[in-house]
Design a protein around this nucleic acid. Structure first.
Lengths: 144, 144
DNA sequence: TATAAATAGGATAAAATTATCCGAAATAAA
DNA sequence: TTTATTTCGGATAATTTTATCCTATTTATA
């Protein structure tokens, strides 16, 4: 469904958000440990998220990654997914046709529409806040 | 969503089904042309589909790939997808956790449930027959 | 039985994704 | 201003996925 990079990106954002609530910046090292991901690879993904203005980084001593406390509730899963995997999950054809739309549908076009729309709705309506709070309360987990 | 191999596999099955209705066997060459895929790679996927008893192959002169006419309506997309991509699309965690279930859910576990169930329902209830008939009638297309 | 036409399958190669390493640049604090 | 800390970014490597090539094997027909 999502690439590894995207999975790491989502989990990283959640962990960063949790710490940002408490005014704490976190390093790629801490993040990688907490979400069980390769550190250097995770760092690359964090860079991409910074470039897409989803999270912020502060260089130098006492630096790290954070996300604006006010933004946490406004950041949706869709933004993170789009930043890392692009929008093929929304717009791409289920069978990989270059051109696939109502006028020239692939064999599963209509069948997929419902699934895709539900996925899209879910991604666009799930906020980082919601996911972070569930981790904090122990209702969900970032690693096995 | 699906791997390239799986996309090719689904399209190949549809084309084979269409021809099997008319008692015609088809070669990897014809298939690849019709579904716009690399021929040798497609041939490998056909072999896998044969091993999974989804399609049949006949070696030698006048041979080719076919699917039993009576089976076409009973073959579901789910079988093809499972044969090629495995069942990670059903059972795998959306965020890649080794262990992710009701008791130890990843952050998006519940959110994903609906999407995954709908996808599963769709794959299990869409028959090769239905897809093949839509291609025959010109309602959908195997390539752009 | 010989021949031509097909699939089967092993060995590689190319491309994309995932992952690692290391030095440069930035920054806070001593 | 120096130092320690930390992100940035380029280069490279490993792995997986996708793709190609070539030979062996099978089979219908002449």
């Amino acid at each position: 469904m999502f690439s590894k990079a995207c999975e790491y990106g989502i989990k990283a954002c959640i962990f960063i958000a949790i710490n940002s609530y408490e005014g704490k910046r976190v390093s790629p090292k801490e993040i990688a440990e907490e979400i069980n991901s390769p550190q250097a690879f995770t760092a690359k993904i964090l860079q991409a998220l910074v470039r897409h203005n989803i999270i912020e980084s502060v260089k130098g001593a006492y630096g790290g990654f954070e996300v604006s406390k006010n933004e946490i509730k406004h950041i949706k899963l869709a933004q993170i997914v789009k930043a890392i995997d692009g929008d093929s999950i929304y717009n791409g054809c289920g069978l990989g046709l270059e051109k696939c739309d109502e006028n020239h549908p692939c064999p599963v076009h209509d069948k997929f529409k419902g699934v895709r729309d539900e996925l899209k709705y879910m991604l666009e309506n799930t906020s980082l806040e919601e996911l972070a709070l569930n981790i904090k309360s122990g209702a969900s987990f970032l690693k096995a």
